[in-house]
Simulated assay, not measured.
Amino acid sequence: MKAKEEATVVASETSGRFGKKKIIIAAAGAFLLLGGGGGAYAVMGGSAQAEGHGEQAAAADHAEAGDGESESAEAEFVDVPPMVVNLRSADGAARFIKLHFMLVPASADKAEGIKIKLPLILDAYQPFLRELRPEDLAGSAAVYRIKEEMLVRAGDVLGRGQVKDVLIQDLIQQ
């Protein structure tokens, strides 16, 4: 009798290649994977198409405007020479950060004022950058926090509203 019960249990477990639970889990995983992929494609694909059309229109506007306007667009960025700063580390090991960034003035006429006060801006950035720890630079949110802090410090030196954005070109941790 016992052999008959074991044979029934084995037969029911191996009745198909996959059990019902495994089929349900696989179907749910496939649904989530396809749904997530489709949603990501819709979000990324839709915004890329809209940006593409906007960039084409902007390029056409610049082509019609002439060369005088494109030269002023180039002057709107203040390139800051790369900075190398040592980081604070808990283990006492030598850690460094190399940072190359550009400042975007609120208007083109404010770019010259930023260039003149650039040493003061760099002096304001030094203590902040030296207090960073290697853990503070982990993840994509770290770059956002660094940009925001640099923007606040530039505003403290130059006055609020003088710098519109900080564009980080290189951020290398060693």
Rank of each mutant, 00 (worst) to 15 (best):
L171S: 02
G54E: 12
L158W: 04
D165V: 07
Y125E: 06
V166I: 15
Q169R: 09
L171I: 06
A7S: 11
R153I: 08
G19Y: 04
K22E: 15
M44R: 01
V104L: 12
D156M: 10
Q174M: 09
Q126S: 13
K22N: 07
A108M: 00
D156E: 15
L132T: 06
Q173Y: 01
E135Q: 14
Q126V: 11
L122Q: 15
A94Q: 14
P105M: 02
V85K: 06
G139T: 04
M83N: 03
R130V: 09
L99G: 06
A57S: 12
V104Q: 10
V152M: 11
G155E: 13
G113V: 04
V80T: 12
T14Y: 08
V43Y: 13
A59C: 00
E55P: 02
A75P: 03
L33Y: 01
A42D: 00
E76K: 12
P105D: 03
D123Y: 05
A58D: 04
P105F: 01
E76I: 14
A7V: 12
S70T: 15
A42F: 11
M44V: 14
L87P: 10
I116H: 06
E69I: 15
G16N: 08
G19W: 05
E71Q: 12
G36I: 07
Y125P: 04
A75R: 13
A124H: 01
P81Y: 05
E6F: 11
